[in-house]
Design a protein around this nucleic acid. Structure first.
Lengths: 219, 219, 219, 219
DNA sequence: GAGTAAACGAGACGGTACGTCGAGTCTTTTC
DNA sequence: GAAAAGACTCGACGTACCGTCTCGTTTACTC
């Protein structure tokens, strides 16, 4: 909704807020924040499946009605809570494609596999897909902002001649993010930093991924 | 088959019972089959989220108890139903790696994006992940058999020298399956045959994926 | 007096409005009237049970707070609305006890059984009884004024020697009003003019009520 | 518990019960009884208005669903609970009309004004009247059985010549029951044994009710 | 070919959470 | 600066399924 996707906390409430967001949303401030905090906590503690609106309301010290007033469903609530809990999608620009891309892959790994709140994304995604509108919201709020940062990396690299000018950025992104995602959700293989390097090697150098030497230190 | 889900008291798999349900079968055969059929139908009609044990029992003309007798949970039931409804994981061996791999990718696309029952896999996976035992069962019954067929393809290719002998088959599989999976579940980009070709090109030739020429026919 | 239910927009607020509500009345007059009107309408349309403060506020185009400012509860609001909507308790004095009493009984019948707003009284009474203060208010505002008119009838009759000087007016009133009330609320027997005559006959002449001749025209 | 109060369980189910009521109702026995007992207790403790299905279920140690399975609404539940908790409508036959009627009036007084569970009847009646089907059930289960006993008294008296043969029993009943009911619910006058005598005097002798001598002991 | 024990259909059970409604309170905005 | 608007907390509503638990009632195997 209004909220300015990214949570630049200072810039949001400071100067006016009253003018923009207006009468409608201001009243809710306390409850609103408590609900999002409770959601984030419960997601981290028990996961997406165990999250109930009732539980959120109780933890937030709020009536269920108040939750439903602002979010139409569990999915919508979680999308917003996760989006705020995740680090804002910062720009990546080391000047070197290889390095930028490695950062991007590691970020994905961290989000999906390590951050307490990002690990609910697979379940959230599966749930959101059942309703096209929620699917759209899921992508707009959680996925696109983070994708954009990497698309910029690739576009810059293409401008520098490090990638073909007609590079299909979507496929490239889907390849590394998908590989990470799929490991976590489906194949169950471990997600390590080695994987990040294998993926970058494949994407930038066309290097077929090979198994690490058995005596090598674990990733 | 493998599962031995059933607690066949003494002679579980012994004689034959037709090979399929076998064991379980004092009188269960009919109910067993009806339940799986009902599950498959309901999955195709309304999706994973809308599936309830109660609905399955009703559709199968069976008591809820009978469902619970044979499957401990919705997840377990769906794993088996999907695994039976999906085409059996056939061997792939055209003699040519490029061709074999293209078939494999197309198969994944068909399973995840086209088959009425395969489309529930993302939601099923997300649900299964909450319990390590179910996650294991999910992988054993649905994922590994299909992965094996492709692993064999890669191993044969390595033996022929078309791939490094220490190729990391898991990463290779996760890359293309993940890309497809991620498109469906997360990024929402279309999943076309072009994607299959881009992925094979990347994996075998190291070709950076590029956008199709705009006047090219749609994938 | 009561009849000003409808909010003649100009005539209501203009001249003084200071008489009744006093200081409160700056903006209150309009809202006050609108609330009572909405209550009366909704009572007539849907009955006491279906009446909600929220509904009243909505119909009156007013916030809930405004309702609560002037009436502490649904019961209090309805008492006032009904008391205004009912015809004012006019004096009865035909000079003849029998006639006066018949008028009184018919009035009760009309109020409880026929008037769109009087029919809520049973439910209102039941609700009011749970709180002694509301019970008192209910009696003071709705019952006593109407009882008084009949008590006067009886007192005059006693003065004329048509009734014992120590007649127990309360019992007499409770007998005929109770019979009507009970028919409506409990026994469900029809409430007709015949009943009025039977009751008067019993009270004034000690005539045991008898069934009407079957061929007689319906009451 | 409650059960023995009214319909001695033996006399009700005696002949077979197992055969008749059969499979359908037998399962519920324990829960059924617990629910009715809880309802009766809560009615006595807090009254009709404060009774909630949720509260009943909790007190009975039962799921809400179980309550709703057997009773469609709070009204229906209370009708049955009250009907079981009230003393069964026993025959009255002292051989003397005056005496029989006095007993009848005192019974009504006791039911409506004294018994812990009978005092909810006014509120129950008001609630039941909003639905014709429940109104009918209310009358059939609570009112008619008790009325019948008195109708018999009157019919016998008429046969003995103590009342006109075409006495309107309904009016007679409504007069005394209504007077009692109305005192409790509306006029708020005290309900004493004196009232019973005044009513019998009026109905049988046509005696206008008079106030007790002021020095007489309180009723 | 009769007896018996399992698996069966049916569905009631105690529960949890749903999403909605309305009560009555408290805060913010408006006139 | 009082009145109106409306967001709030809370509790109950009636529903859907959960997973467990009797119930009789089939079968299909054993004897």
């Amino acid at each position: 909704m209004s909220e300015a996707t990214s949570n630049g906390p200072s810039s949001v409430d400071k100067p006016d807020a009253g003018g923009l967001v207006g009468s409608a949303s201001r009243r809710s401030a306390r409850a609103h924040a408590a609900i999002l905090a409770a959601t984030t906590e419960l997601l981290a503690e028990a996961g997406y499946g165990a999250l109930t609106i009732e539980g959120v309301a109780a933890r937030a010290g709020v009536g269920k009605t108040t939750v439903y007033r602002w979010w139409p469903s569990k999915v919508a609530l979680v999308i917003e809570a996760v989006s705020r809990a995740l680090p804002a999608p910062a720009q990546i620009d080391t000047g070197e494609l290889r390095h930028d891309l490695l950062i991007a892959v590691r970020r994905v790994i961290h989000t999906f596999a390590r951050s307490p709140v990002g690990t609910v994304i697979p379940a959230l995604a599966a749930d959101a897909m059942s309703d096209p509108q929620l699917a759209e919201q899921f992508r707009n709020q959680l996925i696109r902002p983070r994708r954009s940062a990497v698309v910029e990396v690739l576009v810059r690299a293409a401008a520098r001649g490090e990638l073909p000018s007609d590079v299909d950025t979507d496929v490239l992104l889907d390849v590394y993010a998908g590989a990470v995602f799929y490991r976590i959700l489906v194949s169950g293989e471990p997600v390590t930093d080695l994987l990040a390097e294998q993926l970058v090697g494949l994407l930038l150098d066309g290097k077929t991924p090979v198994k690490p030497r058995p005596d090598a230190p674990a990733g």
